[in-house]
């Protein structure tokens, strides 16, 4: 048991180091700006004294280490500064956006994970069959499709083509969610973006599940079990599944992390007021506090999910759980 704890501790330590470096990069991006932050936000016409005042106000007269520590403390307490483009409090604004994004991602994940796992396991069990081939071509195609194409096809099929002359359609093409929107309305509004994300993620997840299971079914102990004459269902439940848990958990976590990236493009397609959309807008306006905050959240989630995947695969590894 101590071996497993040591492995986990090592992995967690590595995760912490990564997190530290990532915060350094995000905090340090201001340093890398051509000119400096104050000149960038005040423009060319700013007088020397206003630039100086701005520098003092934002603490640019301090050394980098001091500023980094302050920034880290502020970020941890959700004091993210004010947005440069709309002068709103970034913390408040980002929280709403984050809730929207989490809602969308959770919706997509709830549909995608069971679907992908079932289809992937079936494809592995009946491999080289007609069904497997079809699934293979289908997933290869949808992986090759850019997210916005999938999104537009969804809009075309489920929104535009189903619209009637009275102006109603099955699902709205634009997911304009407001804070006061009720849960049922939200589900209806978010349906198309969630389905788009699902389609994109299912393809990846299914391929990876299939590969993981096939890898497993080829191992000697499965062959041994077959030769012993054990029933097929028992082989899968007793011999394959416990060993398949690690790869499957890994696949799920990796794809949830992938969802985070996919969410950016999908939110832009459906003009959904989420974190991804706000990041893209902020990058266009060079709204640095918002960029930093959103990048930090995305990076944090990504790192944590990958960390969880690794830890779970360590924990669910039978060889580590039952050491000789």
């Amino acid at each position: 048991m101590s071996k497993i704890l040591a492995t986990i501790a090592q992995r967690l330590g590595l995760g912490l180091v990564t997190l530290f470096v990532v915060t350094l990069i995000i905090a340090g991006m201001i340093e890398a700006l051509p000119g400096d932050f104050c000149q960038a936000i005040l423009g060319q016409s700013a007088t020397e004294s206003t630039v100086q005042a701005c520098r003092r106000e934002n603490g640019f007269d301090q050394p980098f280490v001091t500023r980094y520590v302050t920034w880290l403390g502020n970020t941890a307490t959700l004091d993210l500064g004010t947005s440069l483009s709309n002068k709103r409090d970034v913390g408040e604004f980002i929280t709403v956006r984050l809730e929207n994004t989490l809602f969308l991602a959770a919706f997509a994940a709830i549909v995608a994970v069971p679907l992908a796992l079932t289809l992937g396991i079936l494809a592995a069990l009946y491999r080289y069959s007609w069904y497997d081939r079809f699934v293979n071509v289908f997933t290869l195609t949808s992986i090759s499709f850019p997210e916005f194409l999938v999104g537009y096809i969804m809009i075309l099929l489920l929104s535009v083509m189903t619209s009637t002359l009275e102006g109603g359609s099955w699902f709205p093409a634009l997911a304009t969610v407001r804070p006061e929107t009720s849960f049922a309305d939200r589900v209806h509004l978010v349906f198309l973006p969630a389905m788009t994300l699902t389609l994109v993620v299912v393809a990846h997840m299914m391929r990876m599940t299939r590969a993981a299971i096939i890898n497993l079914l080829a191992s000697p102990y499965i062959e041994m079990a077959r030769l012993k004459g054990i029933k097929n269902s028992r082989i899968i439940v007793k011999h394959a599944l416990p060993n398949a848990l690690a790869p499957i958990v890994n696949v799920v976590a990796i794809n949830l992390a992938y969802l985070i990236v996919g969410v950016v493009v999908v939110e832009v397609v459906f003009t959904y007021p989420g974190l991804g959309k706000s990041l893209v807008d902020a990058v266009k306006f060079r709204d640095i506090p918002v960029v930093q905050a959103s990048c930090m959240i995305f990076a944090l989630t990504y790192i944590l999910l990958n960390l969880t995947a690794d830890v779970l695969s360590i924990v669910s590894n039978p060889r580590l759980l039952h050491p000789r």
Binding site: T18, I26, A257, V264, V283, C295, I303, N306
Partner: peptide, 19 residues
């Protein structure tokens, strides 16, 4: 390892803001 720890699209947007 560090470069791969941040999602690519997010990292790209971050760098594009700077440069």
């Amino acid at each position: 390892d560090v470069l791969m720890a941040i999602p690519q699209l997010i990292f790209a947007l971050l760098i594009l803001t700077v440069i």
